[in-house]
Amino acid sequence: MARLCSSTSSNSVFIWTCFCVLVASNLAEFPRIKHNTHRNDDSVAFLVVGDWGRDGNYNQSRVAKQMGEVGKKIGIDFVISTGDNFYDTGLKSVNDPRFETSFSKIYTAKSLQKPWYTVLGNHDYLGNTEAQLSPALRKMDNRWHCKRNFIVGAGYADIFFIDTNPFVNDYFINAKKQKFDWKGILPRENYLAAVRKDLDSALSKSRAPWKIVVGHHPMRSMGYHGDTREIVDQILPILEAHKVEMYINGHDHCLEHFSNRKGSMQFLTSGGGSKAWKNKFHYGVHNNASKQFYYDGQGFLSVKLISRDKGALVFYDVYGKPLYSIKVKA
């Protein structure tokens, strides 16, 4: 490799060096964040919301208020965002006022003043992705933690956050008039191979009783977008091989629970943070054995991991009413 980088052309050296650096950055292991819970044991509680950032409109503020109430009631440790954090075109820069008008000034409840662990959605890629990934935002609001791929270790759980956007073929071959910001992603195939490899490696090293994976796009959904075939083909086998307990996503603006036909994995959609009620469904995609719950509306999800092998999930609507609950086992 060193011999190849030593080209006789200075331009070739520069181009090849940039390529080597880019590939090396793509092959870096997932960074890990250790989240210390406020309890004496290793139990952990958190909320999940997705597809929210609309300056408080489309009932975003109402959902935020109810999140605050539920967060206080169950004593959450943090919040997870499943992406599409700022509509319609992400953030323009770290100084974009939408960071305050759609986040800091909306989620103001005391119980929500905890870390927000966040992935990017496709709408975030229509803006400046590096702005959302920048540590500068944390100086404005220290709750904000956004990376492309990372791990949060909290109590009984290891939570693996993955950027699913680069897996979706349509964003590259049928993008229409949309302009995605792919800085840090190209060459795409190298990036995707690195994510698969690093996810597989990270899951194999984890000794946590609960392994949870978070991404923007659904693997199982009867909502407007339906299944995301690329991550079903490329990511699901990795999760099944490592007996992941939950895959949590947004993208479809609804609330859903599916169980896996193979193994015990739960598929959970929490994309009801603001605009919803699309009233378009993919009936017949999944059999009755896998579909457990579907709600075409706004709301959010709470997760409590009570012990090494027992957990409780509850979906809430925009009024804070529990719509559906389930007890799960690791």
Rank of each mutant, 00 (worst) to 15 (best):
S7H: 10
V23D: 06
A24K: 15
A28M: 11
I33S: 15
N36W: 11
R39K: 08
N40V: 04
A45L: 00
F46K: 00
V48R: 12
D51M: 01
W52G: 04
G53H: 07
K65V: 06
V70C: 15
I74V: 10
G83D: 12
D84I: 03
D88R: 09
E100W: 09
S102A: 08
I106A: 04
H123S: 09
H123T: 06
H123D: 11
E130M: 08
L137Q: 00
M140R: 15
M140W: 09
N142L: 05
H145Y: 06
I151G: 07
I151Q: 13
I151Y: 04
A157Q: 06
A157R: 09
D163R: 00
N169A: 14
K177M: 10
K179Q: 13
R188A: 05
L192I: 10
S206I: 06
P209K: 01
I212V: 15
I212R: 14
V213A: 14
G223H: 01
D227W: 03
R229G: 03
L236P: 04
P237Q: 06
L239V: 06
N260F: 03
G272Q: 01
N279T: 00
Y283H: 11
N287S: 15
N288H: 07
D296L: 09
G299R: 13
R308T: 05
K310L: 14
L313C: 04
V314Q: 08
F315I: 00
F315Q: 00
L323F: 10
K327H: 13
